[in-house]
Design a protein around this nucleic acid. Structure first.
Length: 509
RNA sequence: GGCGCAUUCGUCUAGUGGUCCAGGACAUAGCCCUCUCAAGGCUAAAACAGGGGUUCAAGUCCCCUAUGCGCUACCA
């Protein structure tokens, strides 16, 4: 057994989730910072699964998390699926290692058997709490003789193993973010390192694995700051050299409370479904607790790698600001090449628009999925700067693919101006009928030209004319640019829609 | 209760003793552009938690208070 971490200067960092659910915002930020540090320093990024709590363990969440990580573009060099020379990368497969070290600690009298039952301990703790007293394990089992221990074990009594924490020693470590942290060991009880089921507790397994896997830098959430002294105690007991520590400020909900489901979506997966781009999420997450300079807010992944530094991480917990994420996502949507956007949008059209509308609702010619690419590539430039998420896009472009629906409000839109609206529709239909049968004549500029003429002719502002046509065309007061939209829909369908709305008006006249 | 950590516009932040009547971004408001909605451009409003020190000089250093958060589990 190698007792000391090799003093190599190689950067090795890890992301160590416990498989209890989706990858959420906070974990993703931790993963990102580890990844950035590894890539920046030509180091290794390692994934380790901390699955020592059988009760909370959910096997299927492992692949869910790994998929989210992949989707974000955070690739790893060693991990449960990738292997590596420090495998296995799952704590459940490393219990023999922990047992080995436990034996050693017991042999050296740095740890001891504890036969106290969880109920007994709980009672003591609650009593202390009730009396407003400081509670610490009373070391009832510390001085059991070898014979007593053997007898208990032979009797089949369950036991846990506790670390013997030295009294009144100063534990100090330098955190890259929070500076020098000092704790007196007397404030730490002899905490359990092995549960009565034989599995290690977090602080024990994490310290051993980080040491054995030669992790050079630990980058994790601030909630672990108070755990660090305990882990240092373990490093010391085992003669391991502690790594470099960096604790990241927490990410909180808008109310300053711990980010949770109450605050809306917290899993990366749900952001993906909502239509956020991975680079937008990465960019936003990087800005939570880190800043490069006084003005830059947009960073590509490679710029982040290039500019990232542990020194510029802030201490203050950050509130998650959904509207800023939205803005960044909108930026990246605008920034994406049309061709690439077309692919993502196409997927969503097939999944969310065409599949959710029954065939009979889709007008003739629109159920055909061929020609979809050509159509979407024309739509992309019309919508890319008006959407902040892809799910907004779904809503905006629906009528390109599916029959328009006019709801009650839209049907009533022209209340006392029905005659005017009807006139606009009639004149527009006329001019469409008069234009050559040649379909190439049905393009945005001639459409616009005709409508502008109509505006002059009726002496009505152009926007009022456009409003009528828009509502007929889109069943909504907002739409992508009208004339380009009509060109994409095609003359035949455009005429149909003008007539449908005309009939609605007629019915109400 | 004990221990630890934090505190600059509503939000994310810049700021490492003078260059800060505190800079940027999101959000908000107004104007411009405009076929709607956006996008874009311009402008506005908006902060050093409070109190004591140290210093010629404090957002920046020290102390106290307040508030918030974390740990205090046979969770991680």
């Amino acid at each position: 057994m190698n007792e000391k971490r090799k003093s190599s200067s190689k950067v090795r960092v890890r992301f160590a989730p416990s498989p209890t659910g989706f990858l959420h915002i906070g974990s993703a930020r931790t993963a990102l910072f580890n990844w950035l540090y590894a890539r920046k320093n030509n180091g290794k990024f390692i994934i380790r699964i901390e699955d020592t709590d059988i009760a909370r363990h959910q096997e299927d969440t492992i692949s869910l998390m790994l998929n989210s990580l992949k989707w974000l573009g955070l690739n790893w060099d060693e991990g449960p699926d990738a292997g590596g020379r420090y495998s296995p990368y799952r704590q459940s497969a490393r219990v023999d290692i922990y047992k080995e070290y436990t034996k050693k600690l017991i042999r050296e009298r740095k740890a001891y058997h504890c036969f106290c039952s969880p109920e007994e301990l709980k009672d003591k703790r609650e009593k202390a709490l009730k009396d407003n007293k400081f509670y610490k394990y009373d070391r009832k089992c510390l001085n059991l003789s070898a014979g007593e221990i053997k007898k208990n074990i032979d009797l089949g009594k369950k036991y846990a193993v506790r670390l013997l924490v030295p009294d009144n020693k100063t534990i100090t470590f330098a955190d890259n973010v929070y500076g020098t942290i000092t704790v007196n060991s007397s404030n730490i009880e002899d905490f359990i390192i092995i549960r009565s089921n034989g599995l290690p507790t977090y602080n024990f397994s994490v310290a051993i694995d980080d040491a054995l896997m030669e992790i050079s830098n630990i980058i994790r959430g601030e909630d672990h700051l108070s755990n660090t002294p305990k882990q240092i105690l373990i490093y010391n007991a085992l003669n391991f050299v502690p790594p470099d520590f960096t604790h990241l400020p927490m990410i909180l909900g808008s109310d300053g409370q711990k980010l949770s489901k109450r605050h809306g979506s917290i899993s990366i997966e749900s952001y993906r479904e909502e239509g956020f781009l991975p680079q937008a999420i990465l960019n936003y997450l990087a800005l939570l607790g880190w800043a490069y300079d006084e003005k830059t807010t947009i960073f590509s992944a490679s710029e982040l790698v290039d500019k990232f530094s542990l020194d510029s991480i802030t201490k203050k917990p950050a509130k998650f600001d959904y509207s800023k994420l939205l803005w960044i996502n909108g930026h990246y949507i605008r920034d994406t090449e049309d061709k690439k956007l077309k692919e993502v949008i196409k997927k969503r059209v097939l999944q969310n628009i065409l599949s959710k509308n029954k065939l009979e609702k889709i007008p003739a010619g629109h159920e055909i999925v061929e020609g979809l690419d050509e159509k979407i590539i024309k739509i992309v430039p019309l919508v890319k700067e008006r959407i902040k998420t892809l799910s907004e896009c779904d809503k905006l472009i629906g009528p390109f693919f599916v029959k328009v629906e006019y709801d009650a409000e839209i049907k009533n839109h022209f209340k006392d101006k029905k005659a005017f609206a009807a006139e606009v529709l009639n004149k527009t239909l006329d001019s469409l009928a008069n234009t050559s049968k040649d379909k190439s004549n049905f393009n945005s500029s001639t459409i616009e030209h005709n409508l502008r003429q109509l505006s002059d002719q009726l002496n009505v502002s152009f926007r009022k004319i456009a409003e009528v046509v828009r509502i007929a065309m889109w069943g909504a007061t907002i739409s992508p640019p009208l004339f380009e939209t009509m060109e994409i829909i095609g003359k035949e369908e455009a005429i149909k829609r003008l007539e449908s709305y005309k009939n609605i008006l007629a019915a109400r006249l």
